[in-house]
Amino acid sequence: MAGLLNVSVSPHVRSSESVEKIMWTVVACLVPPLLLSVFVFGIQVLLIAGVSVISCMAVEAISQKALGRPVTVKDGSAALTGMLMAFVIPPGVSFLLPILGAVMAIYIGKHLLGGIGYNIFNPALLGRAFLLATFPVAMTTAWLVPLTDGAIFSYFNSGVDAVTTATPLAVMKEQGMDAFRQQFGAPSEIYASFFLGWRPGCIGETSGLLIVLGGLYLMWRRYITWHIPVSLLGTIGLLTWVFGGETLFTGDPLLAILTGGALLGAFYMATDYVTSPSSKTGQMVYGAGIGALTVLIRLKGGYPEGICYAILLMNPLSTVLDNWFKPKRFAPPIGGEK
């Protein structure tokens, strides 16, 4: 009997949550919007997502092998990165793009910096930023037109290049509100169809409803908390309302939240554990910062959608925010802090 017992440090019971479980749950939450996008845009979407996920996992495995680290592809973090990257690139791009993006996101963005937990920027968004810089035309134009019937098979019939269109935010930015209304309908119709997902854009920009549902599920599972999404969307709404209209206080906050990647960013991108602050106050500031930068880039910047860059810009600040908003200690020692 002696010596057979297994010794380890306390605590001897652990909660049933694990990194693997969290990552794969988040991936699972992204599946419904993906399936809806397949229905809206066609099978091409599924292929792009598949290539993205597989290449991210492959790059993860290869880089871990090459760097002599334990291979942890199974923990799902690479799969999640792949999934998210597919959600933020136009569905009509060539398959080469997600593969290149995976190299940037996983190898350069993550493993060179020390692997999971040490990346400074959100890998998926880093991949997207890289692709946007490298293939500016494809990344800003390869939007598919949402199809109403038999979409799944249309890819095989028509090919991809034939059907491209502009995203709602791009129309809004480049052609103004009037053109936007003309193309996408009156506000009352827009809200509903945008919320459901009938609009051009990347996968992550389509169905607000499914994204929100997934996000709420993650909140219910306590994988994410309300702090980042609420402060982020609240700031976007507030600032758009104040500055987004022709005069002050006439912007359309609801439209700002529903269009573009605001919802995906708020629930899935900004809440990425590694690159967001841990303290709750820090998270609120972080979310508000992303929201403000998003509105800044949308209204004044060079891109129609700003949330991706806004998150990237706030990522390095998360360490700073954690330093500024340390958790409150139980009680200071007598005589105060040293």
Partner: peptide, 13 residues
């Protein structure tokens, strides 16, 4: 091949 490399930020990489 990759426009990225003539972008200034690629210099760092």
């Amino acid at each position: 091949p990759l426009l990225f490399f003539i972008l200034p930020s690629a210099g760092f990489f």
